[in-house]
Computed example of a mutant assay.
Amino acid sequence: MKEINYKAISNKIRRKRVSMGLTQEYLATAADVNVSHISNIENCHSKVSLNTLVYICKAMNTTLDYVVSEEYSSDNESLDQQIILELKKCDTVLKEKILKIIKDLQ
């Protein structure tokens, strides 16, 4: 499997946030992280976790698929399979939170 291009994900988050007129403070509050973490994600100084990415996407009314679409192709595992693999690494409480967020997005 290829390495995830966090720079591309960071750029997409920043472009989407700016195009919507949202502040880093807004995303930080929505993702329950501090503003400096959002800044570090957008400037590619920190890798965004799946949990934080889900909250960011929800706050921007967009999908995980939109943000990570350049990170998979039909030649690789499907996005669903990659998400399932990542979810298997999470503890039960985090899985329940993520599943609730996904349900709320539908």
Rank of each mutant, 00 (worst) to 15 (best):
M1F: 10
N5L: 01
Y6N: 06
Y6S: 08
K7V: 13
I9K: 04
N11A: 15
N11W: 02
K12E: 07
I13A: 04
R14D: 08
R15H: 08
K16R: 12
V18C: 03
S19L: 09
M20V: 00
G21H: 08
L22I: 07
T23H: 11
T23V: 08
Q24T: 06
E25S: 15
E25D: 15
E25M: 08
Y26V: 10
A28F: 02
A31S: 15
D32W: 02
V33F: 06
V33D: 01
N34A: 06
N34V: 11
V35T: 08
S36A: 14
N40Q: 13
N40S: 10
I41P: 01
E42K: 03
N43P: 01
C44V: 05
C44G: 07
S46I: 00
K47S: 04
K47T: 08
V48C: 03
L50I: 13
L50P: 04
L50N: 12
T52P: 02
V54H: 01
V54E: 01
K58N: 13
K58E: 11
K58H: 14
A59I: 00
M60W: 10
N61D: 15
N61Y: 03
N61T: 06
L64F: 14
L64C: 14
L64T: 12
D65G: 14
Y66A: 09
V67F: 07
V67D: 03
V67Q: 05
V67N: 03
V67R: 02
V68L: 10
E70R: 06
E70P: 00
Y72F: 15
Y72H: 09
Y72P: 05
S73I: 06
S73G: 15
S73K: 04
S73D: 15
S74G: 05
S78N: 11
L79Q: 00
D80G: 13
Q81A: 09
Q82E: 06
I84N: 07
I84E: 13
E86T: 00
L87W: 02
K89R: 11
K95N: 01
K95D: 01
E96M: 02
E96A: 05
K97E: 07
I98T: 02
K100P: 00
I101H: 13
K103N: 11
K103Q: 11
D104T: 13
L105Y: 13
L105G: 15
Q106R: 10
Q106W: 07
